[in-house]
């Protein structure tokens, strides 16, 4: 494939450039705009249809942005960065409506709760919970090490990961009633939509997961690299994982995935760096360090075939489906934002 070429179900729509490496991206809940932040600290909002730049703020976070999260119902979103700050923005205002100063040091994770009532963040070994207006509600004790990921099981329960531990917090009180210990550095997190399975990629080239309902855990090893990209589909049937040139797909059908062979999607020439399931159905988008993007149609056993492909300039930082599932955004390491319609 040559650079810029697009095949299959992907049809070129628009592309745009931002200043530096994209750190996070998300669509507004109505799919009307795509918001991106970069490692130079800029925040950019693009119109969904033509890719017109609605507005940008080049130096929102000194030192660089690190995380972003879109509110599930309103046009609010939050960004965080190396400056130790969280900014809450309204898309229509083009400037932050609220700035939360957490302290010196990086704010690396940021996530709205599914009901949009709370915003969770992590700063070093601590997590902080805010109301939608930015008022702090509680903060955790220090974790064993820097918090590596956050996730919401539902609007009442928050999960954090760090080296050696997964902790579940009651988001109302800040109390933690369940934790899973495991000696390893957890670098990525994906939660099944029903909140039962907590899956983590680990520094030692494995994927570890826990089932809350039974307390059982399993380890999937044999990856050639760190699985930094993980994604569950919307039904919780499939868990797609990176950790090598192949996309490894575990099926939770029946008694699986324990004791089953995973699906292996092998077209990338370098390590898989980004994964995202379409909002409905078993359609997966994958991006790699090779600059390739594939759209796969999967079966419930994890096997699948490619439906479309595109080649970008460099490593894929993000792939991100529009909420209607009819467009896919991809962001590469050169700061190019590309959006395709998906037929």
């Amino acid at each position: 494939m040559t650079e810029g070429k697009v095949t299959g179900v992907l049809q070129s729509d628009w592309s745009a450039a931002i200043q530096d490496y994209p750190m996070a991206s998300c669509w507004t809940h109505d799919g009307g705009a795509l918001v991106v932040c970069d490692s130079a600290g800029g925040v950019y909002a693009f119109d969904s249809q033509q890719g017109e730049l609605l507005w940008s703020e080049q130096s929102a976070h000194e030192g660089g942005a690190l995380a972003m999260s879109m509110h599930p119902r309103e046009t609010l979103f939050a960004t965080a960065g190396q400056d130790g700050k969280i900014l809450i923005w309204d898309l229509s205002e083009a400037r932050p409506r609220c700035c939360i100063e957490i302290g010196s040091g990086w704010v690396e994770n940021l996530l709205w709760s599914p009901d949009g009532a709370q915003l969770a963040s992590s700063h070093g070994r601590e997590i902080q919970i805010f109301a939608a207006d930015g008022t702090e509600q509680w903060r955790s004790d220090e974790h064993l090490s820097t918090v590596s990921a956050l996730g919401w099981l539902n609007s009442k329960e928050l999960v954090s990961t760090c080296y050696g531990r997964v902790t579940i917090f009651d988001s109302g009180t800040g109390g933690s009633d369940q934790r899973f210990e495991w000696k390893g550095s957890l670098v990525s997190l994906a939660l099944s939509p029903d909140g039962d399975v907590i899956a983590c990629g680990s520094q030692d080239n494995s994927v570890h997961f826990w089932r809350r309902s039974t307390g059982e855990d399993s380890m999937m090893s044999g990856y050639p690299g760190k699985p930094t990209a993980l994604a569950f589909d919307s039904t919780g049937t499939l868990l797609a994982t990176g950790g090598g040139d192949a996309v490894t797909v575990w099926s939770f059908e029946g008694n699986g995935p324990e004791g089953t062979y995973p699906g292996s999607l092998e077209l990338h020439e370098r390590a898989v760096s980004a994964l995202s399931f379409a909002p409905d159905g078993l359609t997966l988008a994958s991006g790699g360090r090779d600059g390739l993007v594939f759209v796969w149609s999967l079966q419930s056993d994890g096997q699948g075939r490619p439906e479309g492909a595109a080649m970008l300039e460099s490593v894929l930082a993000e792939v991100c489906w529009r909420p209607d599932g009819k467009a896919l955004a991809a962001l590469d390491g050169e700061g190019i934002v590309t959006v395709w319609t998906v037929s």
Binding site: Q203, D204, S206
Partner: peptide
């Protein structure tokens, strides 16, 4: 960049 020392052992 200030960062606390964090030593990670591997599960092996």
């Amino acid at each position: 960049i200030e960062a606390d020392e964090e030593i990670f052992e591997m599960s092996n």
